[in-house]
Design a protein around this nucleic acid. Sequence first.
DNA 1: TGATTGTTGATAGTATTACTATTATATTTG
DNA 2: CAAATATAATAGTAATACTATCAACAATCA
Lengths: 226, 226
Amino acid sequence: MLELLSRVNVQVNDNIYLKNPESSELGRKIIAGSIDLIDSIGFECFTFRKLGQEINSTEASIYRYFENKHKLLLYLTSWYWGWLEYRLVFQTANIGSPVERLEKAITTLTEQVEDDNSFTHINKVKLYHILIAESSKAYLTKSVDAENQEGFFAGYKKLVDRVSAIILEINPTYKYPHMLVSTVIEGAHHQRYFAEHLPRLTDSIEGEDSITEFYKNVVLNAVKTQ
Amino acid sequence: MLELLSRVNVQVNDNIYLKNPESSELGRKIIAGSIDLIDSIGFECFTFRKLGQEINSTEASIYRYFENKHKLLLYLTSWYWGWLEYRLVFQTANIGSPVERLEKAITTLTEQVEDDNSFTHINKVKLYHILIAESSKAYLTKSVDAENQEGFFAGYKKLVDRVSAIILEINPTYKYPHMLVSTVIEGAHHQRYFAEHLPRLTDSIEGEDSITEFYKNVVLNAVKTQ
DNA sequence: TGATTGTTGATAGTATTACTATTATATTTG
DNA sequence: CAAATATAATAGTAATACTATCAACAATCA
């Protein structure tokens, strides 16, 4: 099943890029290289010049694929949301009980991404690390409204909607399904970041997966009552 | 009481700045001006050159107060956590019931900051707006560990600890008080941002304060059960 | 086959950013 | 009044975030 998943090609809004990076060898090197480089030096220090050196190409060539590094970050995060939604659909298929389905969904949304041995150019573990540390920078900008209009955040919204629908199945009168789901997704990222860098803001012990347990607990209690 | 609060001077770790901006007229203009400017053009577009023009001073003069714009953002966020903690202490004083105290605390942490008529150089409404859109950029950097060592995030941690203590008063066996509190603080910022820019990720209606209601509900249910 | 088109690499150039350094002048303090 | 300090003005540098041009090569189409 994981192999099957790895071959699925995730769709990304085609106004995010100038030229589809999936369409060429150089394009795939740009994606693979940017995941490595952003993960290692951080988004602020990352430049197209450095990426060019890393992948033995040039700044100008990379600019033919992406207008700027912000668009590249949008691409990576969009790709991730698409991939996550695909995984979610797969992992919650054939579960009759909506409560169990919700539990499984929370696990998918909050669990640590492990190496999936898929051997594509996209390193999921590093990409997840980028999502944790950089993804909010993709929408915390002055261009968010224009980019939202163009549909750049559609994948994220779709994912949130999908899990919200399970919540409404369990409790059709629950007032805040979207808030709950987006709180869980963003919260899990923050908690993983805090566990690594600011441990006094969390109670998570490295190794143990208390983050998933915590959010399952929060969601089920919130949905059941009220 | 609000007047009293406005006169309190909030303490900020003095390694964040080169020269205390509270110590001079120019320093206060730097703070006031940066709040206006970051709120209006966003942290990415904000530069010390533009700030100099805004306050009729120069780039070089501002550099005598802050090493770089990142340190200035750290200053603003630290100041805000200090101010919020002060408000929290004030507003939860003399409430006997810990459940009521927790409810009041969640309100303080999540409610929209309104104009407090304090007439200081710090515009609280704009500062809150900056916290919502920019505060996570203060710690989502490669320098986070070094800066954490220096105590730059102490104010945030202290605030989280203080509310966690109330939770433990209610339920001494609750395993995740810090996670719960940091989830609420960060979550409330995200939800306010989403309500304005990405409404499909939230269920918040402008005007109504569903965000505070939502988090109160989540916290009380999580703390009571388990 | 030969002309056209598209892709990449190489190089260069510009405006802006993120600073640092120097000096003159004004203000405060001792 | 002298000394120290704060600020403004100016200039300069290295890096960043691009844009433009052109040559080399491959693919393709007529």
